[in-house]
Nucleic acid binder design. Structure first.
Lengths: 329, 329
DNA sequence: ATGAAAGCGCTAACAT
DNA sequence: ATGTTAGCGCTTTCAT
């Protein structure tokens, strides 16, 4: 079928061993200038391309890293994780084997089995939103790193966003914009985001010498509908600014606020969370928010898998969520 | 290192050939019930897992299909294509090798080279929005199918959305809702979507016996900002309904309409296009739109590559864009 | 400085 | 019904 090393060897009038040596630029190999040139020429002429599969077979241990994702089709979040993981993997000579499971356990096991059969160096198990998961038993059979999720017992290294720092940052932005009476619209869904962002909100308030007022903390379904529905309550609270659990909630809140004649940011400053692509930059006014560093999380996942990143302190690597200031405060 | 077929053979007291036969359930192989049981037991006991790489090496031709995408990190569109492609690939025993290039030519060539070295059965070259592309020269070296894009000379099979049918469907929905004076907000960007959707709009009008009125056709940047800016003009046109080039434009238009006191759909019916995840279902009111069938496009791409799908007529396989009716008309 | 040969884990004739 | 053996394309040790 295709051109093999043998063909090159024959064309260059050398042995396959020699070809192998020059192609891989083997350190301790003394190849004559002439032979080297002949090989290189033959490679170019024949359009030779090494067979990566054969290579890993003979070397043992492949250059694959598996990435199982639970939802690459619904949000761009998983895409960003994949992007970061891939860039980092390539940087180290690895190729990503991606599998999308859409939360289906059977698909998940198939995916992991497939990766194992392809001799992956390890597996990155990722979720599209930060949460606790039960680690599939199959993952015991290879090195694995949890990405954007973690197991209860922290039995595996995990890379997750620093929710608390993110919540603190969001609140600090509101404070820096001159507000003191700041509401928070939290999610109704129990999650690290729910507790972490709230803790960050509280700690930023405390640091600024503002009393925590529980009547300023609301809960709403974490989507546009939730934000819209909570608008009256937020207005009634007399808040000057509000930190929303995520950008979608902020988007719904925008509608609710405007419908009641409030202007953003003059009458109410709004801060989001996630920096979600299709939304944040395009609301009116553009939404200030805190970015979820998915790209960086994916990249850090690969580094952790390859033993390039050391997780100090807890067993989770916390990645910083940077502020993205636009015009809503 | 790991358990090989030899280990299983030894444990079951048979030859590797026998193991291979029972594991692959080879048709024309007569294996004694006893031997078969012993092999199966040994496999289970040792936790044997076949080495997919070795397998493809000896069989020739791997089970990989490459998918190069230009933007998996920014919209969920690419994710849906990947999802569809992966499901279909798995169904036929193939594994997807995904590479994200974010439009970078160097990354693209690296990706294709990598796939070639991994002996892919073929490559799916995809873009996140439907457009004409220049096919990378490297792709000549393998079977390739264009997904959500096409080359000027149609030198490669391509799978794309049926923009014209989509535009027609969108307009028909507006007509079915009782409107006759229907505006269209087209994009300013030259593209198959621009011409196709407009053609569909015109043809639906014609079919309903409504005169095409060029003063009802507007152009706007295809994002929220464009939709917002065009709102006054659309209102001034006296249209009862408007077909927007995409959901983001519709989202901006919503703002512009409401700001001027118009209610949707009572004062103006709105139709979108794309059925974009984070937006369409969550606007107020939920947006009626036409779905871009990315999942199906990805799946059809794989089928085309495997020769399971025959492209009749032109060299492009047109995939239908189905309507998604919600509350905006 | 270069080549011969063994072997990576598996499949597929071909023997027995 | 089961085993032997020769590759698949490459790397690597050991000769020469």
């Amino acid at each position: 079928m295709s051109i093999t090393m043998r063909d090159v060897a024959r064309a260059a009038n050398v042995s396959v061993a020699t070809v192998s040596h020059v192609i891989n630029d083997k350190p301790g190999a003394r190849i004559g200038d002439d032979a080297r040139r002949r090989v290189l020429d033959a490679v170019a002429e024949l359009g030779y391309r090494p067979n990566a599969l054969a290579k890993t077979l003979s070397q043992g241990g492949s250059r694959f890293i598996g990435l199982v994702a639970d939802a690459i089709a619904t949000t761009p979040f998983a895409g960003q994780i994949i992007h970061g993981a891939q860039d980092e993997a390539w940087r180290h000579g690895y190729v990503l084997l991606v599998a999308n499971t859409e939360g289906n356990t059977a698909a998940e096991n198939d995916a992991i089995a497939m990766m194992l059969e392809h001799q992956v160096r390890g597996i990155l198990y990722s979720t599209w939103y930060h949460r606790e998961i039960e680690v599939p038993a199959l993952l015991k059979q290879t090195e694995t790193v949890l990405v954007n999720c973690y197991s209860e017992d922290d039995a595996y290294p995990a890379v997750v966003p620093d929710e608390e720092q993110g919540g603190r940052t969001a609140t600090e932005e509101l404070i820096a914009a001159g507000h003191r009476r700041i509401a928070m619209v939290n999610t109704t869904t129990p999650s690290p985001a729910q507790t972490g962002r709230l803790a960050g909100y509280a700690s930023a308030l405390a640091a600024a010498g503002i009393d925590y007022d529980s009547s300023l903390v609301f809960e709403a379904e974490s989507a546009q509908e939730g934000g819209y529905a909570i608008a009256p309550a937020v207005i009634a609270s007399g808040a000057e600014g509000v930190f929303c659990h995520n950008d979608r909630v902020a988007m719904g809140l925008y509608d609710g606020l405007r419908e009641r004649g409030l202007r953003i940011p003059q009458d109410m400053a709004v801060m989001g969370f996630d920096n979600q692509d299709v939304i944040a930059a395009h609301l009116r006014p553009p939404l200030s928010t805190v970015a979820l560093p998915h790209y960086e999380i994916g990249a850090a996942g690969v580094r952790t898998l390859l033993g390039l990143e050391t997780i100090t302190g807890s067993d989770r690597l916390l990645v910083t969520c940077p502020p993205v200031v636009r015009a809503s405060l």
